[in-house]
Write a protein that binds this DNA or RNA. Structure first.
Length: 677
RNA sequence: GGCGAGGUAGCUCAGUUGGUUAGAGCGUCGGAUUCAUAACCCGGAGGUCACGGGUUCAACUCCCGUCCUCGCUACCA
């Protein structure tokens, strides 16, 4: 967009309501979007900042079933936790809605209906499996059966995990529903697909018109568009009872696909807040639309959602999608399932009154251009040597001195020398300078520029030494503290988007109102005679014990993840078991399979013969360490080729809850070829 | 394996369209200081810009190749 936008629509990715929010979400999406929105508001722009919980989809349904409760119960729980924690950390959404509410259902249905009415959707009737016991259609991956290709007994309906073959549920021999364990029956069902291939040209030129997007975003989009198969038609509906009902006759038990309804959630949240005025923020070309997301969401926000909007017509497409990379934690990937995370609601409990510290640290260390690491040690250092020592200390020095020398009343300053005018000049240019970074979504750079002001203040005091001059030159001392107070005032204004709580505290001490950004471009904020109070310490030092406790907490949570035990499979008869021929084998030779990351080509001695077996264990074992290892082999499995290499049999492996594999090895003196039973 | 993004001081990162001694913050060492939460301020040390070629008068910056990290994807238990 070349001309100045008339209004802004800022969205933050909808958090999925099956768990709380952690620091990775914050650093990647919510803190930057909040800084941006607060900055725009302070600039006096017309800005709408929307978000909400994404509450549909099979995963929430499954979680509810696993906990023996309802999806409603799950989403209510997490919507509450998430909304509350966003409030407390100061993420200033204009509305934080949810996709399960009425407005959203209506909006999503109307959107779908529009596509349907104009003939954009392809209707396909297919036979799908239906679970008679659970009385519902079953998603492909919740159907298990025997693979027609390799006869693996537990192939999923969409793919056999054993031979890797893509499957359709109807290919399975002896299918079972994972929901109830019963045998599903085929039933005709109708679904609606959105073809995308005819849009690929439009989408490509849309992306290409945004070469200014971040390289990681632009690169991923082009990579996706250039991929071989082109854009496939996507089914926009599912057979499920939790979600937005498909607004057509004959669509009993069908809901919109969660990926279809979720982004529309941005729009319905807007409607909920603004009523008819919503169109200004979504349809007008002079609106600037910015989606803040994590890198896992790039393709969806840059390609699929715009495609939906294009096909519908009448919508303005995203002007920028400043996706961040991932934040690691103490050198390891954040993982919800392994409980390796710092949860926002827990941080807020443990660090009450230190909301801005987390905002500051996550901004300073945000993964803007590549993955970054959050460590508690770094958190402590940034708090102690940046917030406390540089920023808090400067403010404290000024306020204490003004209190001490002038009873809190700002003195007259007479005619300032040019060195002071230079300092004040820096205050005048700071807003534009910081704005330049913010407009480019360079939040850590912007924050650095803010801190440079505090550094300037500290240097000014050190150079001028008012505590000495007060004895010899009261007039000059008055000037110095007058100038230093102006720096404090500018800090109070400009820190607002980054650290809103501290900004308010400081403004109150200085008796200032929040000023529009443009009005911050000046030298003097506080007139002589202004009453100034001390603010106490803006930031508290964080001691080692506090940090050690957090690290310990992380370690503990890691070990106490109760391992997830898979449900037992259905009972089998002895003859089922006796079909298996298990033998003791010994690995003689192992080498990596070319062009495959996970596969090892093994030569296994079964006593009576040597076998070639391909096994997916390359990420767990080095080939040269394997010779001589005793293993248990499924010896009568039908042979097949993997990556062009013959695999005649299968090695049995045990897997722990972290996905680590180990051999089920017989003792070394057990002869090769021995029967296992 | 394919595609994408990265690999710059001990750590976290900047380096704009190729142009003289490659920058910042933190950490570290030394100095100065005491108004301030032993904080601030000044100074020093520290980099063959992943590696190897090439283009150019000139490359961290462009081209080719190799290695490593992350993501998507393929291959699996």
């Amino acid at each position: 967009m070349s001309t100045k936008p008339s209004r802004y629509t800022v969205t933050a990715a909808l958090p999925y309501a099956n768990g709380p929010v952690h620091i990775g979400h914050l650093a990647g999406c919510f803190i930057p979007s909040d800084i941006y929105a607060r900055y725009l508001r302070k600039k006096g722009e017309d800005v709408l900042f929307v978000c909400g919980t994404d509450e549909h989809g099979a995963a929430i349904n499954m979680k509810a079933q696993a906990e023996g409760t309802s999806p409603r119960e799950i989403v209510d729980r997490y919507h509450g936790i998430i909304k509350d924690s966003f409030d407390k950390i100061g993420v200033s959404f204009d509305i934080f809605s949810r996709t399960s509410n009425k407005t959203h259902h209506e909006t999503a249905q109307a959107f779908f209906k529009e596509l349907y009415d104009k003939g954009s959707l392809e209707e396909k009737v297919t036979e799908q499996y239906f679970d008679p016991e659970a009385q519902q259609f079953i998603a492909d991956r919740y159907i298990i059966g025997e693979c027609p290709n390799c006869h693996y007994e537990e192939a999923y309906g969409d793919q056999c995990e054993n031979c890797g073959r893509s499957l359709s549920p109807t290919d399975l021999i002896n299918p079972k529903s994972k929901l109830s364990g019963s045998t599903p029956v085929l039933k005709e069902t109708k679904h609606w697909f959105l073809p995308l291939d005819h849009l690929s040209g439009k989408i490509k030129s849309y992306i290409e018109s945004h070469k200014d997007w971040k390289p990681n975003v632009y690169g991923q989009c082009m990579s996706w568009l250039d991929a071989g198969d082109g854009l496939q038609a996507r089914s926009m509906t599912r057979d499920l009872d939790w979600g937005v009902p498909v607004p057509l006759p004959d669509a009993e038990g069908k809901v919109l696909y969660v990926w279809f309804d979720a982004p529309i959630g941005y729009i319905s949240a807007t409607k909920e807040l603004l009523g008819d005025k919503w169109e200004d923020y979504w349809c007008k070309e002079d609106t600037k639309l910015v989606h803040f997301i994590g890198k896992d969401n790039i393709v969806f926000h840059c390609i699929i959602f715009p495609a939906m909007l294009m096909e519908h017509g009448g919508f303005h497409l995203a002007d920028d999608v400043p996706a961040n990379e991932f934040l690691n934690l103490e050198g390891k990937k954040i993982s919800t399932s392994r409980n390796w995370a710092v949860w926002l609601h827990e941080y807020l409990e443990d660090f009450q009154g230190q909301e801005d510290v987390l905002r500051y640290v996550l901004t300073a260390t945000a993964p803007e251009s590549k993955d970054n690491d959050f460590t508690w040690k770094d958190f402590q250092t940034r708090n102690n040597s940046e917030l406390v020592a540089i920023l808090g200390n400067f403010i404290n020095r000024v306020l204490v001195l003004v209190q001490k020398y002038y009873e809190g009343k700002l003195p007259e300053y007479g005619v300032l020398p040019s060195s002071d005018l230079e300092i004040l000049g820096a205050l005048k240019t700071a807003p534009a300078d910081i704005a330049q970074s913010l407009e480019k979504y360079r939040f850590r750079e912007a924050l650095g520029k803010l801190m440079a002001l505090a550094r300037l203040g500290n240097k000014y005091l050190a150079d001028e030494e008012p505590w000495k001059k007060v004895k010899t030159d009261p007039e000059r001392t008055a000037q110095i503290l007058f100038v230093a107070s102006q720096i404090s005032a500018q800090l109070a204004q400009l820190m607002e988007p980054f650290m809103p709580f501290t900004a308010e505290k400081l403004r109150n001490a200085l008796g200032l109102k929040s000023l529009p950004w443009a009005e911050c471009a000046k030298e003097i904020f506080l007139a002589s005679g202004s009453e100034i109070q001390t603010a106490g310490h803006l930031f508290q030092k964080i001691e080692d014990v506090v940090i050690e406790a957090q690290i310990q907490k992380l370690e503990d949570s890691k070990t106490d993840t109760s391992p997830k035990y898979e449900a037992l499979k259905e009972e089998i008869q002895f003859e089922d078991f006796s079909k298996l021929d298990l033998r003791v084998g010994e690995i003689i030779k192992a080498e990596k399979v070319k062009k495959a990351d996970k596969l090892l080509h093994l030569e296994v001695d079964l006593g009576f013969e040597k076998r070639s077996i391909v096994s997916g264990i390359a990420e767990h074992f080095k080939p040269e360490e394997l010779a001589g290892t005793k293993v248990t082999v499924v010896a009568n499995l039908a042979p097949r080729k993997l990556r062009g290499v013959l695999s005649a049999g299968m090695i049995l492996m045990a897997e722990d809850s972290n996905g680590k594999l180990s051999f089920t090895s017989p003792p070394a003196d057990m002869p090769n070829g021995s029967i296992v039973r």
